[in-house]
């Protein structure tokens, strides 16, 4: 697959709790093309978030390989993996996870602090990202001064600030009202179409899944 950006090959994942191994993913294989918008659906406990975490490089498989953009991320050290995430992945959480003591501007600037960009360059990136999500006028507001939908848009701005190739979103509309959810989905769609971001999104919401180009279902750790 020439233009495949994500290759998940025979991946299994089990978590150890006390003396028990709890299997979560069972011999999963998946390929995502560059510029794709993949929706992952399935009931709670089916392993959607675990698969997303593996693809985003924040967890490691028990078996198998995860190759993203040509890098077998399972072979990277913790430090190299952190650097890799900073460069290649933007993560959007269900509960936004903004740092409450930082303004919208500072939250978006956070991943840029890990780059060698100058202050002026970082400013340019932050302002652009906030403009893309439509919050250029709220950049000096703190998270508590924003609505849920606005907080999620700041989180999306943070995810795209470093211009990563891959965006992973874990239930990005799960904590939002219908209108805000719609705005977020439209924004993700725009990022996919206009900015060519590859998106992998976990969702329970069928309306959200409608925005994805491809939808895969997980059940009991197996991909359907």
């Amino acid at each position: 697959m020439a233009n495949s950006i994500i290759q998940v090959e025979n991946v299994s994942k089990a978590y150890r709790r006390d003396t028990f191994d709890i299997p979560v993913l069972n011999n999963i294989s998946l390929s995502v093309s560059e510029g794709d918008f993949l929706g992952l659906m399935g009931p709670s406990g089916s392993g959607k978030t675990t698969l997303l975490n593996l693809v985003a490089g924040i967890d490691r498989p028990s078996k198998g390989r995860v190759v993203v953009g040509g890098t077998d991320i399972g072979t990277l050290s913790e430090t190299a993996l952190a650097k890799w995430r900073a460069t290649h992945v933007g993560f959007i959480f269900q509960f936004y996870n903004l740092i409450p003591v930082l303004t919208a501007y500072e939250n978006v600037e956070l991943p840029l602090l890990l780059t060698s960009l100058s202050k002026a360059e970082r400013k340019k990136h932050v302002e652009f990202a906030l403009q893309v999500v439509g919050l250029a006028d709220r950049m000096y507001h703190y998270p508590k001064q924003l609505s849920g939908g606005q907080e999620q848009r700041v989180a999306i701005a943070r995810a795209i600030a470093t211009d990563p190739t891959l965006l992973v979103a874990d239930e990005p509309t799960g904590d939002l009202d219908k209108q805000s959810a719609e705005e977020i989905l439209t924004l993700l769609e725009r990022l996919n179409k206009e900015f060519k971001k590859t998106i992998v999104m976990v969702t329970h919401d069928p309306r959200a899944a409608e925005k994805a180009h491809t939808v895969r279902h997980l059940d009991k750790g197996e991909l359907k």
Partner: peptide
């Protein structure tokens, strides 16, 4: 949780 978020966006152990 915040530290986990920072790690997710690329902060390393030394950061």
């Amino acid at each position: 949780k915040e530290y986990a978020v920072l790690k997710t966006i690329g902060f390393s152990g030394s950061h």
